[in-house]
């Protein structure tokens, strides 16, 4: 890309006009195209946060990898955690097209300078959580991410198409695990319900604060980085989840949840936004643990990465 400072004011106006026309046509911006610096930095922030979420997201499910009670499910979970590493890889690569390295981004994550999805700051306390994370957390992630397949930045949009396909498979496996457990013993059914009770509200928080309190939404929508508001996506998720909960035979823990004929949507209660902000600011049950884990893995792997670089430099 061309740095804005290198072109004349007049040239910059022309570039900006061309950029705006591309956005207005619903077309893609590609890495070599000129883009406003704020567009670039907004994308880096959003894609990096998404990549970090995939990588941190390996931990809560990885917590159950060694205790999965069936070999078939163990293979599925291992493949899923592996997919998440793959998603991180695509997304860091998309970010690299904007001139930031994976290493810089990783260091920002472990220094706490960039965020990841707060949902992963909740613990996985039962094996049923593996299913609930697939069904609700990946389900919410898909609602957030499907519109991003149409995002204006080409490499991000194309990465998202593949990621969404895999995420939708993840969601299905979660739903299928829960539905199998619901056909099992009473203890298993109780475990599924307990898990859904714990994850429902944090899942609703995944769409971010209410529109009125979401400072970045408007500009991101104008630039075609974001396609729907937080509240629109949250509504879509609730409408999608209610019949699925009924099919499973679980109760969603919201006394205000009811079909609204007039609106053609479900009414639902508000998550505890104080809890949301507390977790975002580092006060969730697992914030410190998740970052410490990532920092340890990064530090312990340093000598390996250095060895690989040294070996490659020898031209072997």
């Amino acid at each position: 890309m061309t740095a804005a400072s290198e072109v004349s004011r007049e040239g910059e106006q022309a570039l900006l006009a061309a950029f705006d026309r591309t956005i207005a046509r619903n077309d893609r911006i590609e890495p070599r195209d000129w883009m406003p610096e704020k567009y670039r930095s907004t994308l880096v922030r959003q894609i990096a946060q998404h990549a970090h979420s995939e990588i941190i997201g390996m931990q809560p499910e990885g917590n159950w990898l060694t205790r999965v009670p069936s070999l078939r499910r163990k293979a599925i979970l291992l493949a899923k955690v592996q997919d998440e590493a793959g998603h991180g890889l695509y997304l860091y690569s998309a970010c690299e097209t904007l001139g930031v390295s994976r290493r810089e981004l990783t260091e920002k994550l472990i220094d706490g300078k960039q965020k990841y999805s707060s949902i992963f700051n909740y613990p996985t306390l039962s094996y049923a959580d593996v299913g609930t994370i697939g069904w609700l957390v990946d389900g919410a992630a898909i609602c957030n991410q499907v519109p991003l397949c149409r995002t204006s930045y080409g490499p991000y949009g194309r990465a998202m198409i593949r990621i969404c396909k895999e995420e939708s498979f993840h969601q299905r496996q979660g739903f299928e695990l829960l539905s199998t457990m619901m056909r099992g013993t009473d203890e298993q059914r109780a475990s599924v319900q307990e898990s859904v009770d714990r994850f429902w509200w944090p899942a609703l928080m995944m769409f971010g604060p209410p529109d009125a309190a979401s400072p970045n939404t408007e500009q991101s929508m104008r630039w075609g980085i974001k396609r729907d508001t937080n509240d629109e996506l949250r509504q879509k998720f609730v409408d999608m989840s209610v019949p699925q909960a009924a099919a499973l035979g679980v109760t969603l823990p919201d006394p205000d949840l009811a079909w609204n004929e007039e609106r053609g949507h479900h009414d639902f209660g508000q998550p505890d936004w104080d809890e949301f902000y507390a977790v975002v600011k580092g006060g969730g049950p697992c914030n410190a643990q998740r970052l410490a884990h990532r920092r340890r893995a990064y530090d312990e792997g340093r000598w390996v990465r250095e060895a690989a670089a040294a070996f490659a430099a020898k031209g072997a």
């Binding site: 990588i55 390996m58 931990q59 990885g62 990898l65 291992l78 955690v81 592996q82 590493a85 793959g86 991180g88 890889l89 860091y92 994976r102 884990h293 893995a297 312990e300 792997g301 340093r302 390996v304 990465r305």
Partner: peptide, 11 residues
């Protein structure tokens, strides 16, 4: 899983 020196090795 989630402990390897780099993403490629995790995969």
């Amino acid at each position: 899983a989630s402990n390897a020196p780099d993403l490629e090795e995790d995969i």
